[in-house]
């Protein structure tokens, strides 16, 4: 469960202070697929990064599963993020020198999962996204849609309870968007998915839809 209370974020540059989030109050129950719409520069990514524990709010409260995130130290936040949160980005962000399989295995290796279990979990999640046949290819040999599905597999292999997807279809055309959305809803079932988009057609996939306008939720 995510609960936000009067969450604010301001960026201070040398000449000005930019108030990006101006008091967000929001409750997201577990296992919901939530979409956030909004124009470019409206602060969607800023909000997503705060929800995903990559960034911190300037003020306000953020409770994740009854843990007061706004009071945690940076170290505690990182640990919690590792345990609970995964990300999917617009630009796929796969490591270009590694194969799809190695990209997926990466977070497991660093979490100290033994080799055999790593292999099993990687194959399972590859099957889930329907790309077992493409696992030995490096990202440049995969289509955009396939790369994004590999990125989804990498996000899900660590079994997070919260999946943040920041414009996952932003670089894709219509038909691959459909494939990626299907993967995301199928594989993301049973998790809270927080997805950002500015494609209003995709709201059909969501349980709940919010829009961010002028730093406030509507």
């Amino acid at each position: 469960m995510i609960r936000l209370f009067d969450l604010r974020k301001t960026y201070k540059t040398r000449h000005e202070t930019l108030e990006v989030l101006k008091g967000i109050t929001l409750t997201v129950p577990d296992r919901k697929f939530v979409m956030l719409l909004g124009e470019s520069g409206s602060g969607k990514s800023t909000l997503a990064n705060i929800l995903g524990l990559l960034d911190t709010p300037t003020s306000g409260e953020y409770w994740l599963d009854e843990v007061p995130i706004h009071t945690l130290t940076s170290k505690a936040r990182t640990d919690l993020r590792r345990e609970k949160v995964s990300f999917v980005f617009q630009s796929f962000n796969l490591i270009p020198t590694m194969t799809a399989r190695e990209n997926i295995e990466l977070p497991l290796g660093y979490r100290g999962v033994p080799k055999e279990e790593r292999g099993e979990r990687v194959e399972a999640v590859l099957r889930e996204v329907g790309l077992s046949a493409r696992a030995a290819h490096v990202p440049s040999e995969l289509s955009g849609g396939e790369q994004q599905r590999i990125a989804i597999a990498r996000a899900l292999v660590v079994e997070p309870s919260l999946l943040i997807a920041d414009e996952p279809t932003g670089n894709l055309d219509k038909s691959t968007t459909k494939a990626v959305m299907e993967t995301l809803t199928e594989a993301g079932r049973g998790k809270t998915v927080f997805m950002i988009t500015h494609n209003e057609e995709l709201t059909a996939y969501a349980d709940e839809v919010y829009a961010l306008r002028a730093g406030l939720l509507a």
Partner: peptide, 15 residues
């Protein structure tokens, strides 16, 4: 850039 990915994938700064 790789560092950014590793961070998002859940590695600590130390790792």
């Amino acid at each position: 850039f790789d560092v950014g990915i590793l961070y998002a994938v859940g590695l600590s700064r130390g790792q």
